[in-house]
Write a protein that binds this DNA or RNA. Structure first.
Length: 280
DNA sequence: CTCAGTGTTCAGTG
DNA sequence: TCACTGAACACTGA
């Protein structure tokens, strides 16, 4: 269930597994929800025999660029995951990754399997089928990528440019942080984590933030994203003082962080964990 | 059996 | 048209 840190992590996995390699085979499990109207043959034609030139990402959307157009794009939705087969992964459940099927030895919920000429295999799994995959000429021309705001980690606006993204908006700051057309990559848990450390209540109208709060917010976005990418989005390695460790622990709202109560509300249409004693 | 869930999109409202 | 809200989507696991 990926946000920017998880997507960046799987991009690094793909880079290591497939970078510079030629694709020998692509298997598609037909699924008109995930692949839309594009037939399996079109994906195979675009990828088999091609050499991987670059793995790219903007927000939660990623792509594999070859020595020849088109480029293959993907979005992991709520439950998609990518892994290199034959390697260990320690984060199966928390990332919605799929265990191996006992009978076939292949991942459950397999949607796509890419094999390089050296035998390396990379799988794309998605239990809930909210993920998407498509072909497009290039990342510069792709309609979906064009709609994304700047990447929240690699291209975060500075100073007044950052403030300007929010300052005239009256929606809750959390809802705007999760709006992919403003900044791309922040989802539900990152937004909660960031607002907790920035000491800003999630339901605050964006326009009510002071310039000092905007500065704090920007720095906190960078800190949370940088740290979580640094540990390959492995939440067990997130700092002890992160809200993440508590957010799903007590779903009845009885959970505490330090000496403060964690409250659960719906903000921006999503379950929100926050700490009223800290966030104002 | 019921419900929540690390996301996006679209219909409806003002 | 824009800003915003809430429901729908699909399916597993608790």
């Amino acid at each position: 269930m990926p946000e920017l840190p998880e997507v960046e992590t799987v991009c690094r996995v793909m880079r290591r597994a497939l970078g510079g390699k030629k694709i020998k085979d692509v298997e598609i499990v037909p699924d008109t929800i995930i692949f839309g109207a594009t037939p399996p043959e079109a994906f195979k034609k675009a990828m088999i025999g091609r050499t991987v030139k670059n793995i790219g990402r903007r927000g939660k959307t990623w792509w594999i660029e070859f020595d020849q157009a088109p480029t293959f794009f993907g979005h992991l939705g709520m439950s998609g995951w990518i892994r290199e087969l034959g390697t260990h992964t320690t984060r199966l459940k928390e990332h919605g990754d799929a265990p191996l099927d006992d009978e076939t030895g292949r991942p459950r919920f397999l949607k796509m399997l890419i094999t390089a000429t050296d035998g390396t295999r990379v799988s794309f799994t998605d239990a809930r089928r909210l993920g998407r995959a498509w072909l497009s000429e290039s990342s510069e021309k792709d309609a979906k990528v064009k709609k994304l705001g700047p990447d929240a980690l690699d291209d975060l606006p500075k100073g007044k440019d950052f403030d300007a993204l929010f300052i005239k908006r009256h929606a809750p700051i959390k809802a705007l942080l999760m709006d992919q057309s403003i900044l791309s990559g922040i989802g539900n848990w990152v937004a909660d984590e960031v607002l907790y450390h920035a000491k800003i209540a999630p339901a605050r109208a964006a326009s009510s933030l002071s310039s000092a709060e905007f500065a704090k917010l920007r720095k906190t976005i960078l800190d949370v994203l940088t740290k979580s990418v640094e540990v390959n989005a492995d939440s067990e390695q997130f700092p002890k003082n992160w809200l993440f460790h508590h957010r799903w622990g007590g779903s009845r709202g009885a959970d505490r962080i330090g000496k403060h109560d964690i409250k659960r509300d719906t903000v921006g249409g999503r379950t929100t964990a926050w700490v009223p004693a800290v966030q104002k």
